Amino acid sequence: MNLQFMSRTFIACLKGIPTTLIIVSLTILISTPLAILVGIARYKKIKVLHQILSVYTSFIRGTPSILQIYLVYNTVPSMLAIFLKNIGSEVNVFDLNPIIYALIVFVLNITATFSEIVRSALMTVDKGQYEAAQTVGLSRLRTYQRIIFPQAIVSAIPNICTLIVGLIKMTSLAFAMTVQDIMAIAKIEAGNSYNYIEAYIDVFIIYFVLCILIEAIFKRIEVRTKRFKFQTAT
C-alpha cells in the first residue's frame, strides 16, 4: 500500500469535487420542474401523454446508466453536427464541454426517477383536501401550491434524499464522457503508476463523505418538517 501516493491522489481528487457538485446541482435544477410536470401528468393520467411518459420512465429506469451514457455520448454529437451543418452553422460540437452531454444523460435519468417520487408523493395526499379547496374557491394552481405540494414534499423528503445520493454516485460514470470529475482524476493518477487500489480507496472515501453529508442535511430537514406533517395529519 503506497500511502504517499494515496495522500497525493486524495488531494488531487478533491479538485474534482466542484465539478461533481456542479453536475449534481444543475441536474437537480433542470430535472425538478420537468419531474413535477411528468409526475402530475402521470398522476392525473392524461390521455396519450400518460402512455408516452410511462414508456419513457420505464425505458430510463429499466436500462443501465452506463448504456445511456454511451448511447448519448456516441450519438448526440454526431446528430448535432449533422444538424448544424445542414443549417450552415460553423459550431464544432466536438469542442463542447463534455459536461453538457453528462447533463443530458443525468437529467433524463433523474427526471424519470424523480417524477415517480412526485407521483407517489401526490398519491399520499387525501383527495378530499383537493375537493375542499375547490369548494372554497381556490384555483387548481393555488390548490397545488398551498395545499397539495407542501404535504407531498414532506412525504417525499426521504426519497429525494435517496435520489440525490444516488445521483452523486452516478456522476462517477461521467468519466466515460471525459468529464474531469473525481473518478477521472483518480484513474489518471493511477494510470501513471498503476496504483489503482490506492486511487479507488481515495474515491471511496470522498464519495462516502459526500453522501453522508447529504444524508445528514436531509435528516435535519426531515426533523424540521415533522411538525408540519403532524399538523396536516391532525
Rank of each mutant, 00 (worst) to 15 (best):
I153L: 15
Q134V: 05
N159R: 07
N97D: 15
I100V: 14
Q129C: 10
V105P: 04
A174T: 07
L173D: 09
I87F: 13
N109M: 08
A190V: 06
K169N: 12
N92P: 03
M170S: 10
G191S: 06
S115I: 10
Q134Y: 06
M183V: 13
I168Q: 01
Q180I: 15
I168H: 00
T171Y: 01
R140P: 02
V125F: 10
R142F: 00
P98C: 06
Y207D: 01
I153M: 14
T113M: 11
S89K: 11
M183I: 08
R146K: 13
L103C: 14
I205K: 00
E90V: 04
G137V: 06
A133P: 00
Q129G: 03
E189I: 03
T124K: 09
K85F: 13
I201E: 02
I110C: 03
E198S: 01
M177V: 14
F204D: 04
M170D: 04
L138T: 04
A112N: 03
R119P: 05
Y130H: 04
P98L: 04
L96P: 02
T113C: 05
N86K: 10
T113E: 12
L163H: 00
T178A: 15
T162A: 14
V93R: 04
I182E: 03
S172W: 09
L108G: 14
I99V: 15
I148F: 03
D95P: 02
Y194W: 12
E198C: 01
Q180D: 14
G128W: 01
I117R: 00
A199V: 14
N97C: 10
I188N: 11
V203L: 01
G128M: 04
D181L: 00
A186T: 09
I164V: 15
L122Y: 07
Y200K: 00
L96F: 12
I182R: 05
P158E: 02
N192H: 13
L108C: 15
A132L: 08
E189D: 07
I117A: 07
D95T: 10
A152F: 13
G166V: 11
I182C: 03
G166E: 13
I197V: 09
V154L: 05
S89P: 10
I168F: 06
L141A: 14
N195H: 12
M123D: 12
T135K: 05
V107G: 07
A102Q: 09
Q134E: 09
L122F: 14
K187F: 07
S115G: 02
A186F: 12
L103P: 09
V125C: 10
I160Q: 01
S115H: 08
S139Y: 06
I160E: 03
A152N: 07
I168G: 11
